[in-house]
């Protein structure tokens, strides 16, 4: 089953990391992601820009365009991993591995996917 591992943290704190600190965290996480990739379990991974760059379109008779994220929360959605897992057990283990590797605070939300379209954008 495919799981989305959604990363939440305080974006003020994460955003204040220096490039070196950020590279260090990414480096530690890549140990886990490389292992997942080698096992053929890793799908797309992406990181989101701060919520200040977000726009919300509220559905309705006339779709309303609002500035900012959908919800004001103490911790913000900062990034997503798509991982193939046997089941919840393995998804939890994977998230725990990521948590240990990152060494930062915040939390992971695990959401099984019901539809997955890998798409074809190259990214930059």
């Amino acid at each position: 089953m495919l799981y989305a591992i959604l990363c939440y943290d305080n974006e003020d704190v994460v955003g204040s990391w220096s490039k070196e600190e950020d590279d260090a965290v990414i480096g530690k996480l890549s140990v886990v992601t490389e292992k997942l990739a080698q096992a053929g379990r890793l799908g797309p991974v992406f990181r989101l820009l701060p919520t200040t760059a977000a726009t919300t379109v509220r559905k309705g008779r006339e779709a309303l365009v609002l500035d900012g994220p959908f919800a004001e929360t103490k911790e913000q959605l900062l990034g997503v991993y798509i991982v193939d897992c046997e089941g919840l057990e393995e998804a939890v283990e994977t998230a725990q591995e990521l948590a240990r590797a990152s060494g930062t605070n915040g939390c992971y939300e695990l959401r099984p996917l019901s539809l997955f379209m890998p798409g074809a954008v190259a990214g930059s």
Binding site: D12, T52, G68
Partner: peptide, 13 residues
């Protein structure tokens, strides 16, 4: 940048 980002979070529009 940090303070302006904070300000924009508080006044997003």
């Amino acid at each position: 940048i940090r303070l302006t980002r904070l300000l924009l979070r508080l006044f997003p529009a």
